[in-house]
Design a protein around this nucleic acid. Structure first.
Length: 201
DNA sequence: TGCCGGATCCTG
DNA sequence: AGGATCCGGCAA
């Protein structure tokens, strides 16, 4: 069942939590589909949230967040990567949920762990700014998480003071497609004098 | 009109 | 650990 606009009209935190396990569907112009289970999200809860772009006012870039929910807020970061958000909350209250990672289900043969990779894999760029997420090219189907949903601090928003510490990031526990530490621990193969205990995650 | 910084990713 | 790379926002 496809998620309708009412689903997105709820507070960003709720929507972010409920999107874990749902399926993101991208329909390309040639009719082919790409589908992924959403396994990681972040809530940007409103103008008072110093990590939310809308906290710096209503501008051309943030305009879509002030409009009706269920539309795409896409922006460019670091000059090369796109990020896909779903606008949430009732119209007039600017808030959104960043889609950070999906688990490939169908028609995906590229990394999808991380917001930039997700957009690249699905062919999403600034042309999708304002796209209706209850439309034909991009939509979401209901689905439930398969494991407990963890809440943690959002990534890359250290500048936001106390807001950076709020646990507004949601991820499906132990899902390997969640962004962040990939595969084995970074470098620590053996520490001199370390006890021979096995890897500690 | 110019400049600065970023909700990231990849390579060395 | 550092560089790529470019758009929006704000200062001038």
């Amino acid at each position: 069942m496809r998620l309708d606009r009412d689903f997105f009209a709820e507070p960003a935190r709720e929507v972010a939590r409920r999107l874990i396990g749902a399926r993101l569907v991208r329909r390309f112009d040639d009719g082919r589909f790409a589908v992924g289970r959403i396994v990681e999200t972040e809530a940007y809860v409103g103008p008072e949230d110093l990590a939310c772009h809308a906290s710096r006012g209503r501008t051309a870039r943030t305009e879509v967040m002030f409009g009706p929910p269920g539309h795409a807020y896409v922006f460019l970061v670091y000059g090369m990567h796109h990020c896909l958000n779903a606008v949430t909350d009732p119209q007039g209250r600017p808030a959104a949920v960043l889609l950070r990672a999906i688990e490939p289900v169908m028609g995906i043969a590229a990394p999808t762990n991380g917001p930039g990779r997700l957009c690249r894999a699905l062919g999403i760029d600034l042309a999708f700014y304002g796209e209706d997420l209850c439309g034909e090219r991009l939509f979401v189907e209901a689905g439930a998480p398969r494991a407990p949903v963890d809440a943690s601090a959002r990534i890359g928003v250290d500048y936001a003071g106390a807001w950076a510490r709020r646990r507004l990031r949601f991820s499906e526990r132990r899902n390997p497609f969640v962004s962040g530490r990939r595969g084995a621990p970074r470098k620590r193969l053996s520490r001199p004098g370390a006890s021979p205990t096995v890897a500690l995650r």
